[in-house]
Amino acid sequence: MSYPLVRITNSTNYLVTGKVSYMSIFCSDDEYSVAANSTWEASSRGVCLLQNISAVVVTPNGEVFATPYSSSGTSYSQFAVIQTGTDSFAVTRIVNLADENVPEDYVEPTSQQK
């Protein structure tokens, strides 16, 4: 059994670098660099729980440290670096219906119901 590879989507217009930290001393942390509007994927993960993702966004005004993603240990794998203000950024988990158990009788609302 192993967890899905960590994927970090950079939804900003700037280069992002950072580090993915895992819980166990038996797991090697990952350094990453991802271009604007691109996605980085780890090369391996195994059974390592993720503990922290840091990000530094390289803007024309200099390097900005994003608010990191932090956990006591998670198997989640989909993350994004987002811009939250003029010169502020954050690493967040991507959540969508694919991550959830959708009820068998679920029907997507029509445009008139939204």
Rank of each mutant, 00 (worst) to 15 (best):
A66V: 11
A66Y: 10
A66D: 01
A66F: 13
T67C: 06
T67M: 09
P68E: 01
P68M: 04
P68I: 02
P68H: 11
P68A: 04
P68V: 03
Y69I: 02
Y69H: 05
Y69A: 02
Y69E: 00
S70P: 04
S70H: 07
S70F: 07
S70E: 12
S70A: 12
S70T: 14
S70I: 11
S70V: 14
S70C: 05
S71R: 06
S71A: 15
S71C: 10
S71D: 12
S72C: 05
S72F: 08
S72R: 14
S72M: 14
G73L: 05
G73S: 07
G73V: 04
T74V: 07
T74L: 04
T74F: 11
T74S: 15
T74Y: 08
T74Q: 02
S75P: 04
S75Y: 13
S75G: 10
S75R: 12
S75I: 07
S75E: 08
S75V: 06
Y76N: 01
Y76L: 01
Y76E: 00
Y76C: 00
Y76Q: 02
Y76V: 01
S77Q: 03
S77V: 04
S77C: 06
Q78E: 09
Q78G: 05
Q78W: 09
F79G: 00
F79Q: 00
F79I: 03
F79N: 00
F79C: 01
F79V: 01
F79M: 02
F79R: 00
A80F: 08
A80N: 06
A80D: 04
A80R: 14
A80K: 15
A80E: 08
A80H: 10
A80Y: 09
V81Y: 12
V81R: 01
V81C: 06
V81A: 03
V81M: 03
V81L: 06
I82F: 07
I82K: 13
I82N: 03
I82C: 05
I82A: 06
Q83S: 14
Q83P: 08
Q83D: 06
T84C: 09
T84N: 09
T84L: 09
T84H: 11
T84A: 10
G85A: 13
G85Q: 06
T86A: 15
T86V: 14
T86E: 14
T86G: 14
T86N: 13
D87M: 15
D87F: 14
D87I: 08
D87T: 14
S88H: 12
S88Y: 10
S88W: 10
S88Q: 14
S88M: 10
S88V: 12
F89A: 00
F89S: 00
F89V: 01
F89G: 00
A90K: 13
A90M: 13
A90Y: 08
A90H: 07
A90G: 04
V91L: 04
V91K: 01
V91P: 02
V91A: 01
V91H: 04
V91Y: 08
T92Y: 03
T92K: 06
R93F: 03
R93S: 02
R93E: 01
R93L: 03
I94T: 13
I94D: 02
I94R: 14
I94H: 05
I94A: 05
I94N: 11
V95P: 04
V95G: 07
V95F: 09
V95W: 09
V95Y: 07
V95H: 08
N96S: 15
L97P: 07
A98V: 11
A98Y: 10
A98H: 09
A98D: 15
